[in-house]
Design a protein around this nucleic acid. Structure first.
Lengths: 300, 300
DNA sequence: AAAATAGTGTCTGTCAGACAGTATATC
DNA sequence: GATATACTGTCTGACAGACACTATTTT
């Protein structure tokens, strides 16, 4: 391993690297789950809707508004440890596996000053956890999520070497007794053979900071990831589940209808049938399956 | 947009959020390119090798050793702006499009103190740029890259619900007149239906900081990305190129041999033939193609 | 029996892998 | 003509999309 020379040690000691301005750093977690809507008809399958986990802010700024679970990084913890810690502290969910999905470092994104946020995404089977109640400083709740978009402007040069598309994206979050909304202006630019996305918050009602933007970015990325690697959809599932649950999750996230026979054929290799059945339904019960771990773990 | 109440403004003003410890933040850029080896036989196609861009450190710590281009984030710049700025300053390459590929926040990774690094990956056509020479503080150079791995330990429980594989990964970087090496211990753990990777630097010769680790992580991610979306391989290409160049780039990065007729069929839709030909070769010259931009830009 | 979902079978078109064979340039 | 790469054609098997059809359970 590298050993510093005495000269080098001295040099480092004499330089106070902390004299330069530094940002504070936070981890914010976008935790998604699919939650069943209460069905009016027992003969029909319940629909499951994509939801995101929010906590009510107990302090200024944005006191009383809803925000992503998150918090400041400490000196002796990595950002991954920080993410896991704050999610557990604020919501009661202990989750080791998360994806880093973005960094937010724009000026003015936090009224408290220069604060850089690392955004993590976690896909969760909501039924496996009981959320912290509102008895303490923190109150956590699942918000059902709707997203819509509207094209504002489109400019495509003839030679196609520069183009841009401007959109307004609207997000609405429905909780127990509250509706939060936000809208975002997104500009996609096509140049140098790549697509770059810039987005800026236009309006935000009830949602703290730029968290509406972080949520929208996370959804876009989630959709991309699932189209690239369909195994990711399993993250929403409990240990035992039906093929229909899996298909519904897929449809809900991608927004595309599946043909069940084909979907069944595609996933069957990733499953191990159990002798259990889904009960409490008003029709032929479906078989419950487990993940076939051999297909998920490639011991390389 | 959100307006703060006077009470809220007062509260924020009274709290000094900077009193908590904060990290310094840097952007480090892993710039890859494929560079032709000088061929001994004019009748043979030159092989192209994956290379990474390094700069020689002019200051302590690690003075005289080689490091990734990188530098500190400033208050009025986002981390993306920082990445672009430092790459340009230190190497002369101006590049807008880069991927954020990792965050390094472990304790002790930088002898100067608590420094968090955001790692970016850029794929570059090296011939398009002239590197800064060694006339100033910075000297930049391409280092050819070799990577090998050796399995150390493997533990798989019967029910497959927990498993781990431990490996040593060796990296060697060959420059004009220097050989840099480093080795890394990597532990892959398989649990909760996911694979998690932890890696730690074991030894590093001539390479500054934990940059060997950052480079290895970037290569692993690059390979994954290219297997998921083969269009990424085009990033290494100049405006005009042959199908063989493209195939060679693909082989070099993934390490797998391709069958040319099949590869040709697969990529031909993404190309527009030009009337130009590759010249200066000792055999039938290949046609030069351009990207078919319609296939790269999906104006959505 | 009606309703609703669960699950099977089959046809078709596309596409990747393998490889034989032809074309065109230089040495 | 030898050599090396460039490029075309074709066979095969796997698989995704579409959809008709059968099965099983509750109301």
């Amino acid at each position: 391993m590298y050993k510093m020379s005495p000269l080098e040690k001295k040099y480092i000691k004499e330089h106070d690297y902390t004299k330069y301005e530094r940002p504070s750093m936070t981890a914010d977690i976008v935790a998604f789950s699919l939650r069943d809507e209460v069905s009016s008809d027992i003969r029909k399958n319940p629909e499951s809707k994509l939801s995101v986990l929010l906590v009510k802010r107990a302090e200024y700024p944005f006191k009383g508004m809803w925000a992503l679970p998150g918090g400041f990084m400490k000196n002796n913890q990595s950002i991954y440890t920080t993410a896991r810690r704050v999610l557990l502290e604020e919501t009661g969910i202990d989750r080791e596996y998360m994806d880093l999905t973005g960094v937010y470092s724009d000026m003015g994104r936090d009224p408290r000053g220069w604060i850089v946020s690392q955004a993590f995404t976690a896909l969760i089977d909501a039924n496996a956890y009981k959320l912290r109640a509102g008895d303490e400083a923190w109150e956590a709740a699942w918000y059902q999520l709707d997203i819509s978009e509207e094209e504002l402007e489109r400019e495509i040069k003839k030679n196609q070497e520069l183009a841009s598309v401007k959109k307004r994206i609207k997000l609405s979050l429905r909780g127990q007794d509250q509706l939060l909304t936000c809208s975002l202006i997104q500009v996609k630019k096509y140049m140098d053979y790549h697509e770059t996305i810039e987005s800026e918050l236009e309006e935000s009602e009830g949602l703290a900071f730029d968290h509406g933007r972080i949520i929208i970015d996370a959804i876009v990325k989630l959709r991309q990831d699932i189209e690239l690697d369909e195994k990711k959809i399993f993250d929403f599932m409990p240990e035992y589940f039906t093929i229909q649950q899996l298909a519904q999750a897929h449809e809900q996230v991608t927004g595309k209808k599946l043909l069940m026979p084909n979907f069944r054929r595609k996933v069957i290799d990733y499953l191990i049938a159990s002798s259990l059945q889904k009960d409490g339904v008003g029709y032929r019960p479906a078989k419950l399956y487990k993940r076939n771990l051999e297909k998920f773990y490639r011991y390389e």
